[in-house]
Amino acid sequence: MAATDIDVKYVAHLARIGLTPDEEVKMSAHLAGILGYIEKLKELDVTGVEPTAHAVPMVNVLRPDVVRPSLAHEAAMSNAPAKANGLFLVPKIVE
């Protein structure tokens, strides 16, 4: 099992969550406690055990290729924080 220290700043950036320095400190302490507890899974021998992704296993759940009505444009945009010319506006994307 991995080490229980965690680079909160890095992981918070991956998750795109801004943290204040104070939040970072508290978060580190709490996560260290939780990760320490989670270490107990290391006690178990899971050799040869299949992982469970779904408790009720099924396969090939598919839909037919049929067109259904979309939302009206106004409804689609109704919750947009910023919009113009039918587009959702965002700060300039710099590649």
Binding site: V66, V67, R68, P69, S70, H73, A76, G86, L87
Partner: peptide, 21 residues
């Protein structure tokens, strides 16, 4: 005919944000 996960049309050239759900 339709998109990958929903029934919106898979068609090019419609006005912006009119083939969305």
């Amino acid at each position: 005919k339709s998109k990958m996960w929903c029934g919106c049309a898979n068609a090019y050239g419609a006005a912006p944000n009119t083939q969305v759900c």
